[in-house]
């Protein structure tokens, strides 16, 4: 990477913990920027959709004309990483959404929103993630979604002890049910920056 300019990585900044993603990406040398408008999207080499409330991100992205440009960018191969609400936004099929909730799609998966129950069921645990190697990744699940069905081209990256899939990759798209931006373990963001570099 020496000599190459830092990649411009957008972080969707409509709602949620976008500042945390920006901080992690900047610590890894990326030129991370908040994205709220279609014209800001045009400059990025990759995009993170943060944790937050997926129903609010859906509504605001459609109200402010961002949803269609996002869908077009995903279809044309922009690398996108979604955490929690971001994973929901990237799913082709949504279970337990609010009235009329839509997703951007891209990942050939069905995601169930709030799959674990209320906040009382939010938890932390260690996950073995072969693509990241040792040690296990400490993962924080907050009213988190899970991947219930995945098409043949989707690669599961992590599962819970009960077998439920909580991290996936398909082409240039990456999604996790949990929040690597909250724990100081930067391996998922590094993995995503490598995806951007290879795209």
């Amino acid at each position: 990477m020496a000599g190459k300019p830092a990649p411009i990585v957008g972080v969707l900044a409509l709602q949620g913990d976008f500042r945390e993603h920006i901080a992690v990406l900047r610590s890894l040398g990326a030129d991370a920027r908040p994205i709220r408008r279609p014209e800001e999207l045009a400059e990025v080499a990759g995009l993170v959709i943060p944790g937050g409330e997926s129903s609010v991100m859906d509504k605001l992205s459609r109200t402010f004309g961002l949803a269609q440009p996002l869908k077009d960018a995903i279809r044309s191969g922009l690398p996108v990483y979604g955490t929690c609400a971001g994973l929901i936004m990237l799913a082709d099929r949504l279970l337990d959404g609010i009235n009329g909730q839509q997703t951007l799609g891209g990942l050939d998966i069905a995601v169930r929103r709030n799959a674990f129950g209320s906040q009382l069921d939010s938890f932390e645990t260690d996950l073995e993630i072969p693509v990241l190697g040792d040690p296990p990744l400490h993962a924080v699940f907050i009213r988190a979604p899970v991947v219930e069905e995945a098409g043949a081209s989707v690669v599961p990256l992590a599962t819970l002890a009960d077998g439920r899939v909580v991290a996936v990759e398909q082409g240039n798209l990456l999604g996790t049910s949990f929040h690597p931006e909250m724990t100081g373990d930067t391996r998922f963001h590094e993995h995503f920056l490598r995806m951007i570099a290879a795209a």
């Binding site: 900044a13 409509l14 709602q15 949620g16 913990d17 976008f18 500042r19 945390e20 944790g51 937050g52 409330e53 929690c84 609400a85 906040q119 939010s122 924080v140 907050i142 009213r143 929040h179 909250m182």
Partner: peptide
């Protein structure tokens, strides 16, 4: 963490 997700 849940409060972090409510930001904005």
């Amino acid at each position: 963490g849940l409060a972090e997700m409510l930001k904005g």
